[in-house]
Design a protein around this nucleic acid. Structure first.
Length: 110
DNA sequence: CCCGTGACGACAT
DNA sequence: TATGTCGCCACGG
């Protein structure tokens, strides 16, 4: 399991995020054991865009539930995709973020 | 090989 | 509560 690259690990976790739910970069980083490198998660997302397998990066937001990366999505708006899944977004911020939050270290805790 | 950059986060002021 | 600064580490040039 540890043979894969850091980026791949991120992709795996992000892909496991259920529809209508969101998580934070730090949560993923922490789950991977590198909570200090939350930036790397975001950086991975950028690379995820060109990944062979599609990654629902729109379900990943920052600790505030703010769509910091919407600008990088290009064309379609991250917000649009989230709302399409039932996630209410207002002013680039996820509404009821706390309730929609999906923590891999808990949901995948085993 | 060295330097700058960055979809974040925690802490200090 | 709001704003500023530092740390973190992989990747591109």
């Amino acid at each position: 399991m540890e043979d894969i690259n850091f980026f791949d690990k991120v992709y795996q976790v992000v892909r496991l995020i259920p529809p209508g739910r969101v998580t934070s970069y730090g949560a993923i980083a922490a789950y991977l054991g590198t909570k200090g490198s939350s930036r790397m998660v975001g950086y991975a997302m950028q690379s995820a865009r060109k990944a062979v397998v599609m990654v629902p990066a729109h379900r990943v937001v920052n600790r505030q539930g703010l769509l910091t990366g919407k600008f990088h999505f290009g064309g379609s708006t991250m917000q649009q995709l989230l709302e399409s899944e039932g996630v209410m977004v207002k002013d680039d911020q996820v509404q009821d973020f706390k309730s929609l939050f999906w923590d891999p270290s808990i949901e995948l805790a085993l």
